[in-house]
């Protein structure tokens, strides 16, 4: 088996191990903040930053941290970068900060982060670890964006705050309520599963 290139590491999280559609991780922000495309992208990028920065630091310190205290160290590192993002968003836009609410702080409890630190960053050199983490982050962002688009288009008739159907559009109220998050997530999971099934059928059909 050849060592995966940095680019492969990056692609891993976007498609093959997409945190939302394949691993089904980080459901709390996935369902809670995807009422609009902007919120979804902001949340995704915030998580990407925390992922990349904390995995880089964990990877750099991987020889200095003994096994016994690794969880405490990782959580401390993750919490640090969540705090950084929290302050940064306050400085960038207070509206965005209000919209994302408690979910910025809850990034610390997102299982993608500790999972990446433990499963990948602690065992790999800084460069591949960072690439893998950022790939995961982008995969997460992509998933949130896909859900956020559908919910914003149906729930408000807008995309990125721009009205698509004129002022007489009938908003689907359920889409901006919590059940809408479940419906849209389930819809995307069906699409992903159907696509994977189609692909595996096609591969089987080709004589090897």
């Amino acid at each position: 088996m050849s060592v995966p290139s940095n680019f492969d590491e990056f692609l891993d999280g976007i498609w093959k191990q997409n945190p939302i559609f394949v691993m089904v991780l980080g459901m709390c922000p996935t369902l809670a903040v995807t009422v609009s495309a902007v919120n979804a992208i902001s949340m995704g990028l915030a998580t990407t930053f925390v992922l990349g920065a904390s995995c880089l630091l964990v990877s750099l310190l991987r020889h200095a941290i003994p096994k016994q205290v690794r969880i405490a160290s990782y959580i401390l590192i993750i919490a640090t970068f969540v705090t950084v993002v929290d302050y940064a968003i306050q400085a960038i836009s207070l509206d965005l900060y209000e919209a994302l609410g408690a979910y910025i702080k809850l990034i610390v409890a997102n299982c993608i982060l500790l999972g990446r630190a433990e499963a990948h960053a602690a065992k790999n050199p800084p460069l591949p670890a960072t690439f893998n983490a950022i790939g995961m982050g982008f995969g997460f962002t992509l998933g949130l964006f896909a859900i956020g688009c559908v919910r914003e288009i149906l729930g408000a008739g807008k995309l990125f705050g721009i009205s698509l159907f004129g002022e007489h559009f009938q908003p689907w109220v359920v889409m901006v309520l919590p059940p809408g998050g479940f419906f849209v997530l389930a819809g995307w999971l069906i699409v992903f599963a159907a696509f994977e099934q189609y692909k595996s059928k096609r591969i089987q059909g080709v004589p090897s």
Binding site: Q170, W172, V173, V174
Partner: peptide, 10 residues
């Protein structure tokens, strides 16, 4: 139940 949640006014 779905349309009640989606279109409460109508």
């Amino acid at each position: 139940a779905f349309v009640q949640a989606a279109f409460p006014t109508a």
